[in-house]
Simulated scan of single mutants.
Amino acid sequence: MTADELHVVVEAPDDGVVLIRVRGSLDGWSDPSELVEALEAAAGGGGRLTVADLSRLEFADSTGLHVLLDARHRHTDAGVRLVLAGPLGTEVRRLLDVSGTLGAFTIADTVDAALTC
């Protein structure tokens, strides 16, 4: 995997929680379609909680921000909680902060903490 690649792993235990682990870069150079599809499936899957583990996300730009904001909107419409789990990398946190969207998301320090949100 190169630095520009995005890797997505979906775990769906039987308790209504979907855990989506994201690694690499979520930007204009990577293809976010796998993540978009995973987030859409989680929102429409009838579960109660989606946790997006961004602790291994090295970089994100406006493409990544758009993916996350769209996922938040879809989850809200479906009545499914979306929690971003960290710890968030400096550049990812800065993107959310500078764009004024940090407060638009529920963010937990770890995946375990996100599971109790």
Rank of each mutant, 00 (worst) to 15 (best):
A3L: 15
H7C: 03
H7Y: 05
V8M: 03
V8P: 00
V10R: 13
V10G: 07
E11R: 12
A12L: 07
P13N: 08
P13M: 08
D15Q: 07
D15L: 06
V18R: 03
I20C: 02
R21T: 09
R21N: 08
S25F: 07
L26W: 00
L26C: 03
D27A: 10
W29D: 15
W29S: 14
S30W: 10
E34F: 02
L35I: 09
V36H: 05
V36G: 01
V36I: 11
E37I: 09
A38I: 02
A38S: 10
A38G: 04
E40K: 12
E40P: 03
E40A: 12
A41E: 14
A41P: 04
A41K: 14
G45D: 08
G45A: 09
G45R: 07
G47Q: 04
L49M: 10
L49A: 11
L49F: 06
T50Y: 00
V51D: 02
V51Y: 00
A52T: 00
D53M: 05
L54W: 00
L54Q: 01
S55E: 03
S55W: 01
R56K: 12
L57P: 01
E58V: 13
E58W: 07
A60M: 13
D61C: 07
D61T: 04
S62N: 09
T63I: 08
T63Y: 03
G64R: 00
G64L: 01
H66A: 15
H66T: 15
H66C: 15
V67D: 00
V67M: 02
L68C: 06
D70H: 11
A71P: 02
R72F: 05
H73N: 12
R74E: 06
R74Y: 03
R74D: 06
R74H: 09
H75Y: 04
H75T: 04
T76D: 14
T76K: 12
D77Q: 15
D77I: 14
D77P: 08
A78D: 08
A78I: 06
G79Y: 12
V83I: 15
L84I: 02
L84A: 01
G86H: 08
P87S: 12
L88A: 02
T90V: 15
E91F: 13
E91I: 10
V92P: 00
V92A: 01
V92I: 08
R93V: 06
R93N: 12
R93E: 15
R93K: 13
L96A: 02
D97V: 08
D97F: 05
D97A: 10
G100E: 08
T101N: 05
T101C: 11
A104L: 13
F105N: 06
F105R: 09
F105I: 12
I107G: 02
A108F: 08
A108L: 10
D109E: 15
V111S: 07
V111P: 05
D112P: 10
D112M: 09
A113N: 03
A114E: 04
L115W: 06
C117L: 14
